[in-house]
Each structure stands twice: as structure tokens, then as C-alpha cells.
Design a protein around this nucleic acid. Sequence first.
DNA 1: GCCAACGTTGGC
DNA 2: GCCAACGTTGGC
Length: 154
Amino acid sequence: MQYWLMKTEPDVFSIDDLMQAPNQTEHWDGIRNYQARNFMKNQMQVGDKVLFYHSNAKPPGIVGTAVIASKAYPDHTAWDPKSKYYDKRSTPDKPVWFMVDVRFESRFARGLALPDLRQEPALVEMMLLKKGVRLSIQPVSEADYKKVLELAGQ
DNA sequence: GCCAACGTTGGC
DNA sequence: GCCAACGTTGGC
């Protein structure tokens, strides 16, 4: 099993949205970055654990956890001309972009804001906290994952 | 809203 | 295949 961090803008899709979704499960569409796609396609397995991150939020931070609920499958928003994620290179026959289903697991009583995470010496190697890293799907080490849960009081 | 840092595109 | 120009991410 692997651990991940997935970023989302809460104005677009928040952990509360996931909590309120049918079966508390939703597909994670709109990934248009090859590195992030490859993580989903090549490495993500059902049951993998996810840190749920709110970007462009006040404050940004980790707000809960989720579980990968499906293997990667084609992202149909890529072939919908009306979608903001439309990409004409992707077709049902030859999909370019993929998504996974994600199921709600927990919402932290108090979110872990980015400044708080930066103050934690144990997390200095975490990809999220590295300068210039803006991948929206990142692998997380088991140690970092557990540390985050500990900081969240879980 | 600014802008640093990164990713992508496209001319050559 | 290089790299300048452009677009995007995302913290502040």
C-alpha cells in the first residue's frame, strides 16, 4: 500500500463535498499533468491512503484523509468540449487523461495549516513543503503520513 | 492581485 | 532537440 497527497481547491471541490457525496465517494477529474497522471495510472491501488489538501484556501493545509476507491480509468471530462478540462487530444478510443475514485475517510477536527506543517522538523523532507513543488498528486512516505495523522490528533 | 517557479508549446 | 515565450499553480 502507498500513501498520497492530493490537492484540491475547496471552492471547486472540498472535503465537505466529498463527505456529502453519494457513498462519500467521488471521481477525481481534471488532472492535466503528466507526472500526476502517471502516479494515478501506474502506482495507485485501491485502498491506498490519501492526505486531502486544500490549496488556494485560507489557510491552505491538510484537512482530512481519504482512500483510493478505484484503479485509474479514462477521465471523460477530457472529451467533453463544454468542460473546462477539455483536451481534444484525448478520445474515448485513445484516452490521454485518467482519474481515480476517492472515498472519504476522515475530516480533521482542526486542519493542519501549511505554516504549522512547515514548523514540524520531522516533515522537512515532505514533497509538499519543498520549494517549487506544485504537483497536485504526490507520493507521501509512510513516516510522513503517520506524523501528519499524529499532528492532527488522529 | 502579485509573482516565483515550474510545465508546455512551438518556431527554428 | 533547443529554448524563448507563454500558461498555470498556488502561496502570500
